[in-house]
């Protein structure tokens, strides 16, 4: 009876990972950092915005076309609203990207949900920026 020598159980060589080799890019790191920093900035921007719009000087009842036009005539408020738009939109989009990455089961679903997300993000950011930059107080008259 010949003794068959069993080979060692199938083991991958330690230096040949089956995963894709790590790419040297920091996208995920910067995305993570951006979430923290934009979150902090949004705390100030959004709470300030809510305070001005809803509490100060009679709150929401005084808001009309003239009020908005008056605010956007100042570059400071233009910048405030622009920063809020961009940060909130990118912050939210990155959060949703994470949710999609976590929950989409199929690669195709994941791809199309992300495409939808990116399209919506670009559209909203572009439209918002366009309005802020080209707003003219004469448009109503």
């Amino acid at each position: 009876m010949t003794a068959t020598v069993d080979s060692a159980p199938e083991l991958a060589a330690p230096r040949s990972p089956r995963r894709r080799p790590a790419r040297r890019n920091n996208v995920e790191l910067y995305a993570w950092l951006f979430m923290r920093l934009s979150g902090l900035a949004l705390l100030v921007l959004v709470l300030g915005h809510l305070f001005i719009m809803n509490i100060l000087d009679g709150g929401v009842h005084r808001i009309n076309f003239a009020f908005v036009a008056g605010r956007w005539s100042s570059p400071f408020w233009q910048f405030w609203d622009l920063a809020m738009l961009w940060l909130a939109q990118l912050h939210g989009a990155n959060g949703l990207r994470t949710v999609i990455n976590d929950y989409a089961r199929k690669d195709a679903t994941r791809f199309w949900l992300k495409m939808l997300l990116y399209t919506a993000t670009v559209l909203i950011v572009a439209l918002g920026s366009f309005v802020i930059f080209t707003f003219s107080p004469d448009v109503g008259s």
Binding site: R19, R20, A22, N25, V27, E28, A31, N101, D102
Partner: peptide, 12 residues
């Protein structure tokens, strides 16, 4: 660290 910096790494 490079391996864990990837999309499936610690940032998840």
């Amino acid at each position: 660290l490079d391996i864990l910096n990837d999309v499936d790494g610690v940032w998840r």
